[in-house]
Write a protein that binds this DNA or RNA. Structure first.
Lengths: 182, 182
DNA sequence: ACAGTTTAGAACCATTCAGTACAAAACAAG
DNA sequence: CTTGTTTTGTACTGAATGGTTCTAAACTGT
């Protein structure tokens, strides 16, 4: 019994995720954010609260979409070659400039916004668990190093690549390197 | 034949480095910056130009102080145990919240400020070269992996740890992990 | 048709932003 | 002491910031 909203919540949220992902939290001002979301101020503040709340929701949306997709990919991966399963995490995709939203959030807000840090850590934990799953399914426990340690190495390499990639300073040929440590 | 300045340039620059390192570029406003540098606006704009120029100079100062110190440490390290030489790079120092200025600059400005990205990449290159020096001096070329690839792995692990550490989500016991891949 | 809600969009708000202008102060050279 | 030059700190500026308010429109249930 009221006027229906003219925008789709998820579409707007995806726009928020895109712009925050690409520009970061502080570098995204309200006009940027509103344009990316396709909203005007009235609708935005009523539906999303404020900029910070929207950023936190964008992190959740990243979790639900991007992280979940990556986790699925890892879970469905062929269980005979860990290198081949994990290599996609290190493959250039042409979007290095925006990096990884988790990594961006950790670096920009990790030390000052506890909730953002918690969300980022939770997503990193999901990635780590999926990597660990690949390693155990591929029988990577045989060497001297525990699969858990190997998963930590992989996760840190991944975030290192995402961070360095934003400045264009990360190398590209990861297959040999990954294979050498699996 | 003029009034001498009352502040020391290097001291002020170190203050700028500290605050930019801790808070990042955008999150540091001019009052923050001026207080950290111990200057008022007049002196600041005359001596340092503007905020961006000061940030770039702060990166250079980080290179000249922090990076150089780390590189020296690696260069002077005992040439018989690569793990022991590189472990300090991964040791907690109680200042995880500020992370690594190089990593912070890469993630915050790498994709939008070419000069900041170049400086960050140059510093990362210096770290990589020093790591590579440790590896070759310690005879790490024997395995199947080239020292160059191992240096890249180490560098990416380092930046990954710095990024994750800002959100408090990086694990701590690196000795076994490093030893397992050297 | 009407009443009751919620939307959308623009006008508006105080605050903060980076940067400038300027006048007083502090020195050195003569 | 005077002159010339630079530093310093305050006052100021216009633009941009995130956020609020208000009006009119759009819709639903009765």
């Amino acid at each position: 019994m009221a006027r229906p909203r003219e925008f789709e919540y998820e579409t707007a949220l995806q726009g928020a995720m895109d712009i925050f992902w690409q520009q970061g939290y502080r570098a995204t001002n309200l006009p940027d954010l509103l344009q990316a979301m396709g909203l005007t101020r009235g609708s935005f503040y009523q539906a999303f609260g404020d900029k910070e709340a929207t950023y936190l929701q964008a992190l959740d949306f990243y979790d639900a979409c991007v992280v979940s997709k990556t986790v699925d990919m890892l879970n469905q991966c062929n269980a005979d070659d860990a290198t081949a399963c994990l290599l996609p995490l290190f493959q250039p995709n042409g979007k290095e400039a925006r990096g990884c939203f988790i990594c961006n959030a950790m670096v920009e807000l990790g030390s000052e916004n506890r909730r953002a840090a918690e969300k980022a850590n939770a997503m990193a934990g999901r990635l780590r668990a999926a990597i660990l799953g690949v390693l155990t399914r591929c029988g990577e426990g045989r060497g001297e190093r525990s699969p858990s340690d190997t998963a930590d190495l992989m996760l840190h390499l991944y975030f290192g690549k995402q961070a360095m990639g934003k400045a264009g300073g990360s190398s590209n040929d990861w297959e040999a390197r990954l294979r050498s440590l699996l």
